[in-house]
Design a protein around this nucleic acid. Structure first.
Lengths: 340, 340
DNA sequence: CTGAAAGCGCTTACAG
DNA sequence: CTGAAAGCGCTTACAG
């Protein structure tokens, strides 16, 4: 086993000082061509690589980005990480990933842990519990200590920082408008409970679209789901009692579940019922029928978030102007809204 | 903005030495009860947290695990990361994730990068290109430098290290045997090219099952797919020309694609064609019909891999005995193999 | 052109 | 009981 070689060892072998070795490797003009070459050759031979940890301590920057998300086994979040990772890598940053599991406490613990020197900044999406509690002290604290934070998707107005989101309300509005233009009269909504920020916004978009087209908003047409595991009965009830001709679902899972339940009840999609989901993920593409959906480009969101964070990290002077970037969305039409 | 407080600052404020502060915070018995309390109170007030980087440098351990996988936008890998992250966290480790994008070069660069002090060890699954090239020098090197590596899923015999896999061959064997017991006569296979280790093993399992049951292995019944984007034509040809009554697909995507193509051709699943896939992911659960599949518990795999790595990291003496752990699999029966 | 010194933030063996 | 010193691996302003 050959341990990693350090400057000290090279210095000893070559009988020069550590400073000389360091400068040679960094091509300092202070050093004579001769020793420089000698040192570099030796370093190459022994495959010398500067120790990241030592560099981090010295430079007071780790070149790593902390990502804190609710979960990773979720196509959209995986997609965002992918986007972040690629941009981070291009810029010489690594990413360290922590999952909050939708728990406030875990979010706080993870943030604290990473904030103790492990990362230069954060990219995060709030856990459900955090959104419910509206307690953001951990985030404020980190920002106060000078570590920039970029929030994406599940954000809050109560924290001042950079954000990257989609226009959830507008996207929902457009989906519902699509139904209306198609001639649908009884448009249902399958959404989350209101404390989930994006769910609430999409619900608002649905309501506004109906209102703007002089359609009544019927509370019985709206199903708010707390827990995905037992959403079936509520959706079933909606389908049975209200007999909607269109359903807008705020995520893929709600959309596919709706379709499956409709099938079971003999309601045909898209003949009897049109369905639009949210998030252009794997389910929408491979479900039968394929599901029309609002695309939400996670790769792009992640990439943009990483770019914003890195720019802020590498900014000369502090800039108190925070930006919120909007990622454009669009409706991907598939079989579940086909006109036959 | 209040910067993070350091031992030095506390020492200055309290007019004691840095050593005293450090020892007080670590409850050293050397320190008088009095100063200990004073220091601790002060540290708490200022929310002192030791700097991870400084600790890493001092202790020569970072308490972070490097994960290198081909991609993250892939349910199975996301699942494994989740498993790793949870076990890592429970043990006070963080995870830093790098994606190879199935590229050998990126795998090498990422490994090099992380090996320069950023992590204590690695958990990885080989990129396709690495498996094709059979060049594992980067992994050998890391191991040589004393950093343990645990491989999962896409592993190689050419590197000695801990591994966690499923018995791909047996699982495939059992799937095919299930078809045979059901009375299927013309069992097709949709698999990957042979250099993908798990694809090859599953192909072997298929062949062995047929042979053991005295059934002919017909090369025309086997489709080997290089690139998922244009697999349709090959599968279509198989369905059309061979008219199989069962298809075993080595992953979810192949399975769902097969079903969709069959549908399009008027071949009904499961009436005319039974299908079993591999990896119990999101597609299998939500596709219509739902797809029978070999479960491959990624959470468990990840958890086990993390456990193995951490045990090795925290082992007193070096142990040259490497283990390969098998994660049990089983066939999840769903609609695509229903007997009507 | 080379090297000793200080310092990043911490721990710990050793003196006093 | 307290503190100075050395050291983890590096960089860089400063002397010589």
């Amino acid at each position: 086993m050959k341990r990693k070689v350090t400057l000290k060892q090279i210095a000893r072998e070559l009988d020069v000082s550590i400073s000389t070795v360091s400068k040679s490797l960094r091509n300092s003009p202070e050093i004579s061509e001769d020793t420089r070459q000698k040192v570099q050759a030796f370093a190459k031979l022994y495959n010398y690589r500067p120790n990241n940890i030592a560099l981090s301590l010295k430079n007071k920057r780790t070149k790593t980005i902390g990502i804190i998300i609710p979960e990773i086994v979720h196509h959209f979040f995986a997609t965002v990480i992918s986007g972040i990772e690629h941009v981070a890598n291009e810029n010489g940053y690594n990413v360290i990933v922590c999952l909050s599991d939708e728990s406030f406490d875990k979010e706080v613990i993870n943030m604290d842990m990473l904030a103790s020197g492990s990362t230069d900044g954060f990219i995060m999406s709030l856990s459900k519990e955090t959104q419910q509690k509206k307690d953001f002290h951990h985030i404020e604290e980190v920002i106060n200590q000078g570590m920039p934070v970029v929030m994406f998707d599940r954000v809050t107005n109560e924290v001042l920082c950079d954000k990257v989101i989609i226009d959830d309300q507008l996207a929902a509005y457009e989906a519902v408008e699509f139904f209306i233009n198609k001639g649908c009269k009884k448009i249902g909504l399958v959404t989350t409970v209101d404390y989930v920020s994006v769910g609430k916004l999409r619900t608002d978009g649905y309501i506004n679209a109906l209102k703007d087209h002089d359609m009544k908003v019927n509370e019985d047409m709206i199903v708010k789901i707390e827990d995905i595991d037992n959403c079936a009965s509520k959706i079933e009830k909606l389908l049975e009692e209200q007999k909607p001709d269109a359903i807008f679902a705020v995520n893929e899972l709600f959309a596919v579940t709706t379709i499956k339940l409709a099938n079971k009840m003999g309601v045909k999609v898209p003949e009897d019922l049109s369905v639009i989901g949210f998030t252009d993920g794997i389910i929408s593409k491979f479900s039968t029928p394929t599901i029309s959906t609002i695309s939400q480009n996670g790769i792009k969101m992640g990439g943009r978030a990483a770019k914003m964070l890195i720019e802020r990290l590498e900014m000369e002077e502090e800039d108190e102007l925070y930006k919120t970037e909007l990622i454009e969305t669009h409706l991907v039409e598939r079989e579940s809204t086909a006109t036959l």
